[in-house]
Structures are given as structure tokens and as C-alpha cells.
């Protein structure tokens, strides 16, 4: 049994190790090791296309994770005290958002936004004082952020609601009995208790958005994100530079994961000390 487990771990980590190993390859050839070098990391970091894709990915991930955490938390808090059809409809929508394959969300967003933009843009041009300066909607960072926020918001709602339902209602009632206005109860009691869940939701949303390929592939328009850049490069052949980028992306996800764990744990510890 132990040997079996060891084999599974080997299976899980060998491919990752191979990418990291080949990213330090001195040779240009992607599949023969020819000594140690960090030149490919330098190349990747000096490649303007990579840096542009990285910037897009970071902006998209940060913005959509922030929006999703705020709007998702609001919705979770609202849903906590709502019953009846409103709640049922919300539950159904969140279920749909999580169940529908990412690829379908991608194409649906693509055709809906392109169609709507085609209708709206001439209107704006018509009412704008100077036609040539009229703003035009197009696919790009904005549409990726909107689509990622939609999906990750569903995740945040699920996580924060789970936390909310584990908090004792007595605490909030006590606060209300002591004449705390609802906002004070929320800020002094509820928010500190659900903060770790919101933060976990934020990080989850960030990693999802940063790693997402399929939704962005459809709605990015002429923009590139890092996963889109990596995918189109692989199509032309695997290079040590791509391995270097891949290794860096994996390290970033890992660091985020560890930070999230540490913060969640220290907040748990504080609570148990009290």
C-alpha cells in the first residue's frame, strides 16, 4: 500500500518536476538537457509579449477577485436572512453558474457581448457630439473581468454562506438586543467572523482567474492573458522559455496557496485562544 501511494505521488509530481528541470536547461533544444542556466527566465522576463500578457492576467485576476469578493459577500449576507422564492432563484442561479462548463460560459458570453455591442456602438456614435471620439465597446480586459467575476462570485457566495451558517445567531441577536444598529452589528460581529472566508474566497477567485484559459480564450478579443500566450506558444512547439514561464506561474499559485493557509490558520488559532 505504501509503495502504491509513493507511486501516485511520483505520478503527480514527475511532470511538474520535468517542467521545472527543463526550464533551467542551457540548450535551446527543448528535450535535451545541456547544462544549467537561468537564461530562459531572463528571456521570458524581457519578452514584451510575455510581460503584456502577465500584466493583463494580473489586472484581470485582481479586479475580478476584488469585485467577486465584495459583491459575493453582499449577496451571501443578504441571502442569509432571505427566505422563499428569492432565495430559491438565487440558489438555482448559483447552481447553474457552477455546473455549466466553462467553455459554454465562454461561447455564451462571446456571442451575447458581440451581438449587444454591435447594437449599442452605432447608437453611442449617433448621440455622441463628436463621432470620431465616440467610445466603442469591444471585447478585451473588460469582458474577461466581467465573465470571471460572474463565475468566481458564485464561488465566493458558496464559501461565505457556509461560514455564515456556522456562526451562532445568538451573537447577532445579543448585539441587536443591546441596541446596536444593524450596520454596527455587521461591522463589529459578523464581518470579523466571516473575514477568513471572504479572504479565502478572494484567493480562490484570484487563482481561478489567473489560471483560467477557456473562458478568456473566447472573450479576450485581441488581448492575451498568460494562459492564452502559453497555449498559443505550445502550438508552435515547446520551448525552454515556456517552461520558465510555466514554472513561475506554478510558483506564484503555490505561494498564494501557502499564504492563504497561514492566514486562515492564524485566525483560527486566535479564535480558539479566546
Amino acid at each position: 500500500m505504501r509503495i502504491y501511494a509513493a507511486c501516485v505521488y511520483l505520478f503527480l509530481y514527475t511532470p511538474i518536476a520535468i517542467i521545472a528541470l527543463f526550464s533551467f536547461n542551457a540548450g535551446r533544444h527543448a528535450s535535451q538537457l545541456q547544462g544549467f542556466s537561468v537564461q530562459w527566465y531572463g528571456r521570458a522576463l524581457n519578452n514584451p509579449f510575455v510581460m503584456e500578457a502577465l500584466e493583463n492576467s494580473l489586472v484581470v485576476a485582481f479586479t475580478s477577485a476584488t469585485l467577486a469578493s465584495i459583491i459575493g459577500t453582499m449577496a451571501a449576507v443578504g441571502l442569509h436572512s432571505v427566505r422563499g422564492p428569492v432565495r430559491a432563484v438565487f440558489d438555482a442561479i448559483i447552481y447553474i453558474a457552477i455546473m455549466i462548463p466553462g467553455i459554454v460560459i465562454g461561447i455564451a458570453t462571446l456571442i451575447a457581448l458581440v451581438t449587444v455591442f454591435d447594437v449599442i456602438n452605432p447608437w453611442i456614435a449617433a448621440i455622441w457630439p463628436r463621432v470620431e471620439a465616440a467610445p466603442q465597446f469591444s471585447m478585451g480586459r473588460g469582458s474577461i473581468i466581467a465573465a470571471h467575476t460572474m463565475f468566481t462570485m458564485a464561488l465566493v457566495v458558496v464559501i461565505v454562506r457556509a461560514r455564515l451558517s456556522s456562526i451562532e445567531g445568538a451573537l447577532m441577536e445579543a448585539s441587536a438586543d443591546l441596541y446596536a444598529p444593524p450596520w454596527a452589528t455587521f461591522r463589529r460581529i459578523t464581518l470579523p467572523l466571516i473575514a477568513p472566508a471572504i479572504f479565502a474566497g478572494f484567493l480562490l477567485a484570484f487563482t481561478f482567474s489567473f489560471d483560467d484559459f477557456i473562458i478568456a480564450f473566447f472573450v479576450a478579443g485581441s488581448e492575451t492573458t498568460l494562459p492564452i500566450y502559453i497555449f498559443s506558444s505550445i502550438r508552435r512547439g515547446v520551448t525552454p522559455e515556456i517552461n520558465a514561464i510555466g514554472t513561475m506561474v506554478m510558483v506564484v499559485s503555490l505561494v498564494l496557496l501557502i499564504v492563504a493557509q497561514l492566514i486562515l490558520r492564524s485566525s483560527d488559532r486566535k479564535k480558539s485562544r479566546k
Binding site: F213, P227, I230, F231, I234, G246, L254
Partner: peptide, 8 residues
Amino acid sequence: TSILIRSY
């Protein structure tokens, strides 16, 4: 970590 990188 990215499924794209792990797959390739």
C-alpha cells in the same frame, strides 16, 4: 496550479 501547464 494551472491545468494547462500540467497537461503540456
